[in-house]
């Protein structure tokens, strides 16, 4: 997958995250029950999204570094 596609996918992911924490998406996750790991669902949900976002950012960073490495190598080749 090209770096452009990855960036688009990441942007799409964060748009979904935004929609899931504001009205009307957040209506789906507004309730206190079920409890997850001792937390009410309304609190577990944003915490879960932070962890998930972190994983996505780590993935993006890894992909960006790979792309940058390729770019640098090809620049050296030309020089």
């Amino acid at each position: 997958m090209s770096i452009r596609m990855i960036r688009l996918a990441v942007a799409g992911f964060f748009v979904l995250v935004l929609l899931a924490v504001i009205w009307p998406g957040a209506l789906l996750f507004r309730r206190a029950e079920p409890f997850v790991l001792g937390l009410p669902f309304s609190l577990f949900w944003p915490v879960f999204l932070i962890v998930l976002s972190w994983a996505v950012l780590l993935g993006l960073d890894a992909a960006e570094n790979r792309a940058r490495g390729r770019h640098d190598r090809s620049a050296e080749g030309e020089g």
């Binding site: 924490v21 999204l49 932070i50 972190w54 950012l57």
Partner: peptide, 19 residues
């Protein structure tokens, strides 16, 4: 109560463009 959860929800969304 849950009003405070907005503070949890904006941080990551806010920082991503900074990348």
């Amino acid at each position: 109560g849950a009003a405070a959860f907005y503070i949890l929800s904006y941080g990551v969304l806010g920082i991503v463009p900074w990348y």
